[in-house]
Amino acid sequence: MRTVCLNGQWDFLADLDPRYHVYNPRVPIPTMVRPDVNRRHWRKVTVPGVWQKYAQRYDIFEGVCIFSREFDAGEVSAQAAARLRFSGVNYLARVFVNGQEAGSHETGYTEFVIDVTGKLVSGRNHVAVIVDNRVAVTKWPACFGYFNYGGIHRDVVLEIIDSPSLDDVQIETSLTNGKWMLKARGLVRFAQSGHSVRACCAGRNTAGDVTAGAFELELADCPIEAWSPQSPCLYELAVELRDSQGVVLDERRVRCGFRTIKVVDGRICLNDRPVHLKGICHVFDSEETGLVMTRGQIDRDISMLKSLGCNAVRTHYPMDRAFYEACDEAG
């Protein structure tokens, strides 16, 4: 799998008459999302970002805005599958690639993927996103309880699959008779005869064949220390796709913790020991970046939580992936 990061500079325009430009039934593909539209006077902005922080004139603006940029996709073969992965756009997003509508998504804090297979060309391409954060179009209550930012506020990545590749890798840990087990499963795109998958974690490794474009592996009796707030041990799992000669074609590396959690007699037990949850409600809002959470800001917040003795946090909406990773690290 090849990836192209689309973070960085985008062209930006606030649409002050969306009923005519964006939601005009006589114009199914809005003019402003076409690759050849003149964007010379559009504002240059940074993605991830929220438009309330782009300029003072957008401080309290709720409406429809258009984001647009070009990018180089490299060589795109006829068989290639491609998708755009958006980690967060608030609130309603319509995505266009090279002037064609590719898909849409509603809700502002969940990751979504748009299939753009067949819409890319080799070399230069164009993507445009119409973002609508008007309260009237949301399914949330009119009174949010926090500020209604608008924009592409998390990462944007293009994924191109044109050769044998791992995909949708999932892991699951369990404890049986005092022994830890890890299961890894996933898909293999463009799988061929003789392909195999190898998994390695905590000094244990195993391998298996690819069957019907999928794999499932088990690592038994892993010599690990259980994850806990007092000792947040994480282990790296390496998953490799190999050809019949043992050559590595693709690889995924993820970090994971081993722990059990269940309710016993009305009490939450972590690793078979009762745990008292101590936490706060966390709604992120930065004076400088709004919804955009940098890793430095995440680490600062979690450090403050730990200093208060917290071992849990409640959020109103799905957080950025980096926030969960930082929580895993800090316990």
Rank of each mutant, 00 (worst) to 15 (best):
F144I: 10
G118C: 03
R57I: 12
V210T: 09
G151M: 02
P28L: 04
A55Q: 09
E240P: 01
Q297S: 14
F323E: 02
D59K: 07
N38C: 05
A214R: 15
T173E: 05
R185K: 10
R85I: 15
S174T: 11
G203S: 00
I160S: 01
P25D: 11
W227H: 06
Y54C: 08
P318I: 00
G118V: 00
K139Y: 14
N90S: 10
V129H: 14
P223M: 08
T260G: 02
V47K: 12
R57T: 10
N205I: 00
H153M: 12
F12P: 02
G123C: 05
Y54N: 04
A14T: 09
R255A: 04
P48K: 03
K183G: 03
D17W: 06
D36L: 11
D243L: 00
R253G: 00
Q297W: 13
L13A: 09
E70I: 02
D17Q: 09
G266M: 11
V27M: 11
G74L: 03
A142T: 11
T315K: 02
T31R: 15
C233N: 06
V127R: 11
H276Y: 04
D15Y: 06
V95E: 10
F86I: 03
G246P: 13
S104A: 11
I114G: 03
A326S: 14
A102T: 10
G118K: 14
R39A: 01
E218F: 15
C143H: 09
T206L: 04
E159D: 08
F284N: 07
H105R: 15
N205A: 08
D299Q: 15
K119F: 11
G123S: 08
L241D: 14
L237I: 01
D285M: 10
S193T: 04
V50C: 06
F215C: 06
R189V: 09
D320R: 09
G257S: 05
G99F: 05
D285P: 00
L237A: 00
R83A: 12
T211G: 10
L175T: 05
G151P: 14
G145P: 11
I171R: 15
R57E: 06
F284P: 02
A326P: 13
S303P: 08
V157E: 12
V275C: 06
S122L: 00
F144N: 05
A93L: 08
R189A: 04
S174A: 15
Q230G: 07
R43D: 11
M293G: 05
I114F: 10
A330M: 06
R83Y: 02
M181C: 12
E240Q: 15
N98K: 03
M1Q: 13
T3S: 15
S228I: 04
V169I: 14
Q52V: 00
L84C: 00
I66M: 07
A55N: 13
L84D: 04
W227V: 07
L92H: 07
Q9M: 11
F67V: 03
V156D: 06
R204A: 13
V137N: 14
G118D: 14
R94Y: 09
T110P: 09
V22Y: 10
N311P: 13
A207D: 07
A330G: 04
Q56K: 12
L158H: 13
L13Y: 14
W51N: 04
K44H: 00
P164M: 00
L308M: 13
N133F: 14
T211P: 01
